[in-house]
Every structure is written in structure tokens, then in C-alpha cells.
Design a protein around this nucleic acid. Sequence first.
DNA 1: CCCTGATTCGC
DNA 2: GCGAATCAGG
Length: 203
Amino acid sequence: MSWTDERVETLKRMWAEGQSASQIAKELGGVTRNAVIGKVHRLGLSNRNEDGTEMPVAPTPEAKPAPQPSAAAAPAPQPKPAPEPAPKPAAAAPAPQAEPTVAPQPVNFNRRPIVPAGQPLPPQPSANEISPEALASVREVEKRARKLSLMDLTERTCKWPIGDPATDKFWFCGLPSVAGKPYCEAHVGVAFQPMSSRRDRRR
DNA sequence: CCCTGATTCGC
DNA sequence: GCGAATCAGG
């Protein structure tokens, strides 16, 4: 495989989107992440920030990832988005808001790509109609949970939450996940219930 | 152990 | 220019 214009463009696009080198390599195929990284450097875009100045992950007020002057398709480039939707009633308005009614803003730092997005999220075991075996299996497994923190989760660790998120007694299962699933064997058992599994108690 | 990007250097 | 091997880190 060679770096055709097309492939290079894909590389640039994905890199700009914040995709990891390995993800880009997968997408392109025929290359390793090393190759991608090497190319990225040769292209001189190792610094994912167009601005040459050092930017220690500054909290960007506007989540603009940087408009790309794509030569391919850019009908309406809109060079100046300017208009600020949030007018500030400053001036003669002292009122030092004593009590903000709204909760703190969830500032979104490094605008990550909105990539894959996780699978179904935290399904707490609502002991509905889950097979007793599955539940037993889960209890057993949760004793052996690796108790991983959020940061330790990977694509192949069980992401089943255990405990109370509001306390220190919270962690993720962390056992090897079933290929393609976000959970381990046991948790898959309670997370994914076949529609047909609900036996209807015929009165 | 899984992953990340950065760098080196023979090709 | 290319990218495997290696390094440095999370």
C-alpha cells in the first residue's frame, strides 16, 4: 500500500478529527499505526492544533474543531461565523447573582471526536426477569471483578458498573469482555435479554 | 496488559 | 519517503 492522495486525505481528516493513529490505520488498511504516525510527522501535522503556539489544552469556549478548507467539497465555507448568540447584559447591571439556579456548566475540554460512542450504557441489574443462573453467575463474577477505574477500561474489558458511583465503592467489572460486546460473559447474560426469553406465566 | 504518540534509522 | 522497532508514557 502506498500513500495515495486519497489515503493521505483520509489520514488528514481522521487525524484532524482526533482519531488515534491505530484507528486511522484500521480504517485505511494495509498500514500499521506506526506507518500512520510516521506519515503524520512527515506531513508535519503532529501537533493536532493548527496554531503553532503552544496550547496546553486550553478550554475552548466554542467547540470549533477547526474548519477544514477541504479541497474536495466545500461549497459554503462561511469564513465568518461571528454572531454570538449569548448577549451579555453587562453595563448597568450590578446584580451579583447570589444564587445561580442552574448547576455548574459541564465544560467540555478537549473536544474529542464524537466517535463510536459507547454501547448501551449503565444498565443496573433490575432483577426483573433474568434467569436465576445468570444472576448467580453475576454475583459470582462480581466477587472476582477486577475493579477497574474508568480510565482503565478498554475495548475488551467488561464495562459493567458495580457499586455506588457516589461513593468510593464504585468500579467496573473489568473482566475480559465478550468479543464485540461491552461486557463479560456473565454480564452479557443479564444485559442482553432475548425478547423471547420472557416466559409468560399462562395464568 | 491494554493502549497512546514520538523518535530513530536502515531501507 | 517509508515504517518497524523502539521509546516514553497513561
